[in-house]
Design a protein around this nucleic acid. Structure first.
Lengths: 148, 148
DNA sequence: TATTGTTATACTCTATAACTATA
DNA sequence: TATAGTTATAGAGTATAACAATA
């Protein structure tokens, strides 16, 4: 497994295969996920709020490559369910900071665990080396998603 | 880069990070894709028909983890646009085989190239080693998506 | 003027349920 | 009966456009 055997594949093909593969896995994840509980976009928003702390609609939208209106709809639904709470921005009256409530933290912990049960089981069947490749790839995928 | 430094991360965390990362990249791909042209699900269906040849609605649906009705809607739209054509199954009168038309082959080649321009550029900025990791990961992601 | 967020509206993707035709 | 596909309907996710409030 030294090197150039894989570099011979054209980059165009690799790019196509990668995007098809991630689409395929994401649909599988949706299909396997618990129908009760959080939707995909709600899960993502909660996870990001948990990692980043209080965040504005616009920042969340940028991070996930959606329009502020789309993220606003997701946050409004989470607020209606009591999982996030809005706080005024200390210096800018236009901005609104969203933060997890205690209920939101708990909901995320519990429901998210159920949601990813399937992927956890599938990963457990891989070799340790294969898991390491996926782990390295995760960081690269994030870098690609956040590249200029 | 031998081994166990990365195995110390809990599998739960790795799984969460992976699914968030692929969601993030898929949304970025959608946001960057040409608004004219094929939608994501149409692109996927055409790509699969090109690779597999004539295929039934049910088989396509299974491969992409969607219900036959959902895949049927995508195929009906592609048929309306003249990119795929339906053919009777030779022995089973219930089944319908879908295949690309010449126009479909051309549309896929041309529009798909434009659609993935952004990812191609982003991948080109990675190190060769990093591209190799992503290439290996692509196969693993497909295996996960197709696992039992 | 530029930015943040909201409201209104529409399109895509997918699901479930009920139906027809064929095996 | 069981399977392949269609039609009808609904919900989630996203987009664009038009607006209000604040910087």
């Amino acid at each position: 497994m030294k090197a150039s055997s894989e570099t011979s594949i054209p980059l165009e093909t690799a790019v196509t295969e990668l995007s098809l593969a991630i689409g395929q896995l994401l649909r599988r994840l949706r299909a396997e996920s618990n129908p009760d509980g959080l939707t995909w976009s709600q899960t993502v928003a909660l996870a990001r709020l948990e990692k980043a702390g209080p965040t504005t609609t616009a920042d969340l939208a940028r991070a996930e490559s959606v329009k502020p209106q789309s993220m606003g709809a997701t946050l409004a639904e989470l607020e209606r369910e009591g999982l996030v709470k809005r706080h005024p921005h200390p210096t800018d009256g236009r901005q609104v900071l969203f933060a997890l409530t205690a209920e939101g933290v708990e909901a995320r912990r519990k429901r998210n665990a159920a949601k990813q049960k399937w992927l956890l089981a599938a990963m457990a069947k891989l070799d340790p080396d294969e898991r390491r490749v996926l782990l390295s790839a995760t960081a690269l995928i994030k870098r690609l998603a956040e590249a200029d």
